[in-house]
Amino acid sequence: MFEIVLQISLLCVSISMLGLLYRLIKGPTVPDRVVALDAMGINLIAIMALTSMLLDTTAYLEGILLLGILSFIGTVAFSKFIEKGEVIENDRDL
């Protein structure tokens, strides 16, 4: 019973991943694509949690925190690049 619930949830998350992939390919502007990538990172965390429950192991749960941090850093770097044209700016470089 619980396994069927997990499989249905995995199916829902995979369909939502396909929808985000559509927006990532088609998205008319760059911020659209970054929004889609951010949501894809969050969906990847969901897939990791569901898989670790299906396999009945706690070994993959460290990846949850890791993927959350990486997705946040990537989004911040992308938005800073879109806004200012560089990620790490050098103020003394006059």
């Binding site: 019973m1 619980f2 619930v5 997990l6 249905i8 949830s9 995995l10 829902c12 998350v13 369909i15 939502s16 991943m17 396909l18 929808g19 985000l20 559509y22 927006r23 929004v35 889609a36 949501a39 969050i42 969906n43 969901a46 569901l50 429950m53």
Partner: peptide, 21 residues
Amino acid sequence: ISGAFILLGAFLSLVSAFGII
């Protein structure tokens, strides 16, 4: 209870994808 939370979370992620499309 845990299965209900998981199903609700997966459904919300599906809703978010439809919103993004």
